[in-house]
Design a protein around this nucleic acid. Structure first.
Lengths: 208, 208
DNA sequence: ACGCTTATCGGACCGTAGTCCGCTTAACAG
DNA sequence: CTGTTAAGCGGACTACGGTCCGATAAGCGT
């Protein structure tokens, strides 16, 4: 099983009733060493050129440890991204409008898209790695669930009568790393054009 | 290089000027053996459970031959799908409406989506394999280009003023194997509901 | 029919993701 | 401080996708 972001949160911060028994000291130390080494290697060589063996070696831990804690390559990528994703979700819930509360739903949706596209612009390799792996990997993790819940509320507010469930997934699908890399590097759109495209899509969907 | 559908057509049917020198007899025989064995194994065990070694062994050819002719796993999947895809594209160009010419653009787009979703319903494993591999693999092959060109014309007809380029890619992205498997098997939609969702999306995009 | 050229063949080989299991050592009770 | 227990460790191992290159034989000109 993969050690997701939420698991980590639960394990570290929430003293639950029959909860997990606290992380051992060496485990915590190794987790930190791995995340550190991974971030450094990814930055140095690019994500694609770093193998799991490389990470294990650079962190000075065994391969077994690496996979035990992060499940697979995608899980490691998610763990490395965890912090910035957490900050983003915080902005969504408590930041200034239009990303945070206080702006009309339509504007918040567009701002959300722009925010995700900004993340992709800077970290598309890592985000792609995080979404790769088993079929539909990207849909089955907490980040997707959180983004989905966010857009679901906003879209339900903006177009109460529509098939909101499906439309939310379509919108998120147009913000996938895969699609981003295609539009940006194969189609050759600029970041601004990608944002404009998404905004235009949202307009079309909302104004119907 | 991958032996795409279009390459095959060119090699077999179009006597070009400085063209490829015709396929050798043993090569043709082996190609047939491989496609046959692959189709059988995929049907028997499911695509995921068949390795390239399995296919090579079952076809009685070496691994090198397999990879030389089909490039990679995705290429093999595409080759196996080639025939049905060709039939589909023929329906798009010359079949009865609303899939073929003669219906309003909006209806043809919806029919196109339904057609793709039907293919996915029956062959999603193979289609997923065909779209996997390198990042953005699905966008860089002739099938995507053909579908893109088709939708581009129709959408340009239906909404001449819009950002048709981007919208076409969004529509195709909602017809990816990945997204299909998610909606169908994780979200739990029926095939009819998936078709309805796509139709609804098209309505919203066109009616804006 | 025969040899020459060259595309094609096939399997040994490589690097990588992911698994397994015997050993180590942190945590805790007494 | 010491003994017990089980979580954690690590590296050998497997399976798979993909590459390489010497061997083979198809096609062709004569």
């Amino acid at each position: 099983m993969v050690n997701t972001m939420l698991d980590t949160v639960a394990m570290q911060e929430l003293p639950q009733i029959g909860a997990e028994p606290r992380e051992r000291a060496d485990a915590a130390r190794n987790r930190e060493k791995v995340l550190c080494a991974a971030a450094r290697l990814f930055a140095e060589r690019g994500v694609e050129l770093v193998s799991m063996d490389d990470v294990a070696a650079a962190a000075g831990v065994g391969k077994g440890t690496l996979f035990r804690r992060f499940g697979d390559r995608a899980g490691l990528a998610r763990a490395v991204l965890d912090e910035s994703e957490r900050a983003f979700q915080d902005d969504l819930l408590r930041g200034p409008p239009p990303l945070g509360p206080g702006a009309p739903a339509a504007e918040r949706i567009v701002a959300f898209g722009a925010g995700v596209l900004d993340q992709l612009e800077n970290q598309h390799e890592l985000l792609f790695a995080a979404e790769s792996g088993s079929p539909c990997a990207r849909f089955t993790h907490s980040v997707y669930a959180a983004h989905r819940a966010h857009l679901y509320l906003l879209l339900g507010e903006a177009v109460p009568d529509a098939d909101v469930e499906y439309l939310v997934d379509v919108l998120l699908n147009s913000l996938s790393a895969d699609f981003f890399i295609y539009t940006r590097h194969i189609r050759g759109l600029s970041l601004a054009e990608a944002k404009a495209g998404f905004a235009h899509l949202v307009d079309r969907i909302l104004d119907a």
